[in-house]
Amino acid sequence: MRKKTVQMIISNSLMIGLWASAFPGIRAGLEGYTPEHLALFRLLIGSMALLLFAVLTKMRWPDIKDIPVIFLLGFLGFALYHILLNIGEKTVSAGVASLLVTTAPIFSAMFSRLFFGEHFGIAKWIGSMISLLGVSLIAFGAGDYTYSMKGTLFILLAAFSESIYFVFQPRYIKKYGFIPFVTFTIWGGTLPMLVFLPGLGEEVINASMSATLSIFYLGLLPTVVPYFALAYVTSVVGASEATLSLYVTPALTLIISWMWIGEIPAFISLLGGVVTVGGVCFTYLKSNQMKWYRNALRHK
């Protein structure tokens, strides 16, 4: 197996697994923190860890001309995304939230096509539709009809905001490398969040240990590692294809939520997870088959 293939498998596994765990982690953190303070605390933890890493590795700083764009992408991909998602999860279960966020690949594909003319073939569209059917089954099986339309809208807006970050990052990943770029954008997303700093200390004192530990986990792992992994995958295959594997996230979120916060999935939700994974497999297997076929014709 080629080295790049192994790296892709590891990157996708980290991305899916850690992001899947983030949704129940947010629900646990919201037991002791407001959505705004949870987002700020999470980003502060991630930023401080990355600052130490940057100093130890003598990471290069971004060019002055790129700083406004980096700050904007950081705001959209981290600050705005996390605030909107946290607000939405006040009334939406972790499983349903994760499936709503899977609309991000669709938004990413549309933006990639609109701004960069990136090809999104028929196999990917069919695979996406299969996966959307799967996440719809997950939603139906969740049986959580009490969540508000307002919460749903917040999460869809979060997915929309994050998709812009995904689509416009490749140019800067190519220039700086995926680890420095993600580091810069996390810092860029953290700075505007400092407006919510008043009151955070009081919440840290009053919150339960489990809620605080959940945020430390979110800050050190799901906030940082999956973005590194996604940035690497994006640098290899492009934004629209890189985000396709996120369709697997809701299936794994259901299992983790069951184990962590006691959200028990119905059988139809588990069936939806199988369909979701099937859609992703169809997309990649069919796409690779088509690439093999085109290469075979080219070498005839």
Rank of each mutant, 00 (worst) to 15 (best):
A28I: 14
M149Y: 15
A142S: 15
L40H: 10
T212V: 08
K3D: 14
I83T: 12
E36I: 07
E241H: 14
F78H: 14
S13P: 04
S214W: 07
I268S: 07
T102M: 09
Y165R: 00
S21Y: 06
K58Q: 12
L73H: 00
R171I: 01
I155L: 14
L220D: 10
G199K: 02
L44K: 06
M129R: 01
T146G: 11
L218S: 08
T57D: 01
I126A: 09
G219M: 04
K3Q: 14
P68H: 12
I87R: 06
A54H: 11
F107E: 07
A20M: 10
T5N: 11
S257D: 05
I179M: 08
E89K: 09
G25Y: 13
L114A: 14
F178V: 00
I16K: 02
L44D: 07
R2L: 11
T283D: 02
T146C: 00
V96W: 00
V237M: 11
G189F: 10
A79T: 14
V236I: 13
G201Q: 09
F154Y: 15
A139K: 04
G219L: 02
L56K: 14
L30S: 08
S163K: 08
M1G: 12
Y284N: 13
F196Y: 15
M193E: 13
V204M: 13
T185R: 07
T234N: 08
I45V: 15
P250A: 05
S208A: 13
L246M: 14
M149L: 15
G141W: 02
V233D: 03
T190M: 14
I10K: 01
Y232D: 00
M110K: 08
I122K: 15
R171L: 03
F178C: 02
V237P: 00
F181C: 03
G17K: 03
A104E: 06
P265D: 01
L200S: 11
S108H: 04
Q7R: 04
A139W: 05
L218H: 10
Q7T: 01
L194C: 04
A97F: 09
S214M: 04
G127S: 04
G32L: 03
S235V: 00
E89Q: 15
F166E: 02
G177V: 01
Y172K: 09
A266C: 03
F178R: 05
I268T: 14
S131W: 07
L73D: 02
L221D: 09
K90G: 10
P250C: 09
L43C: 06
V275H: 07
P265W: 01
M259D: 09
V275R: 06
L50E: 02
G177T: 01
W292G: 01
I173G: 07
K4R: 04
Q289V: 02
L157W: 10
S287H: 13
L43R: 03
T103N: 11
L40K: 08
E36L: 11
F120L: 02
G279F: 05
G278S: 10
T102D: 07
G74F: 03
F53K: 10
M48D: 05
F75Q: 00
A139D: 01
F228M: 01
W260V: 15
V233W: 05
V204Q: 05
G134H: 03
D66H: 04
T243H: 05
L213N: 12
V237E: 12
E31W: 03
V224K: 08
S11K: 03
M290D: 13
R171Q: 10
I67A: 09
Y165H: 13
T103R: 05
R60E: 15
G46L: 07
F181R: 10
M59W: 02
F41V: 00
Y165G: 07
T34Q: 06
